[in-house]
Amino acid sequence: MPLDIAIIDYNAGNLGSIYKAVKFLDAKPKITNKVGEILSADGIILPGVGAFGDCMDNFRKAGFIEKNLFEKILEQERPFLGICLGLQMLFEESEEMGIYKGLGLIKGKVIRFPQGVKCPQIGWNTIAKKQEHFIFKGIPDDTYFYFVHSYHAVCSKLENILAETTYAGTMFPSMVIKKNIIASQFHPEKSGKWGLKILKNFLESTN
């Protein structure tokens, strides 16, 4: 039986890439905004394209906040992978186009790269592992992943940092973790074979 993977739809961005990557890895992706469907899937992916404030608004409109979707994902220990904005949304707040409150599942905030740095960071950068984790299974050190972002997270607690990356002198958490919830700032679905390996490791963990 292929694994049922819920890709959370909140009316933003292009979900096609992650859908195709999950399908390519022989799992069964479903793009959905139904809380019941999300919680009953084998694994949950929160993709992210767009602005932080809009994303929170869309979460509210979809009823995710009212129904405590993300708290339930944490309590029920559902395998969860956030990508790009899907990582940033886990934090307490972001300064993207004003100050917006986030989900607050991980302590810390999201800030812009300093003035004078080329923004967005677009391209391939490496990650430095800070903890051992199944998501890194078979991934060599200094592997490159594809990043596209102008804002980055700052973790208040070291225990939430899974991997770090440096761009133009700024070091930031490029992967974060809290129990069953993991997230990457880079796009595994756009990072070639090693990105697919990260996704495969995630899918295998949901089995």
Binding site: Q121, G123, W124, N125, Y144, F147, T166, Y167
Partner: peptide, 8 residues
């Protein structure tokens, strides 16, 4: 650790 130059 720096951003790689891209070949397209």
């Amino acid at each position: 650790m720096v951003l790689a130059k891209r070949i397209i």
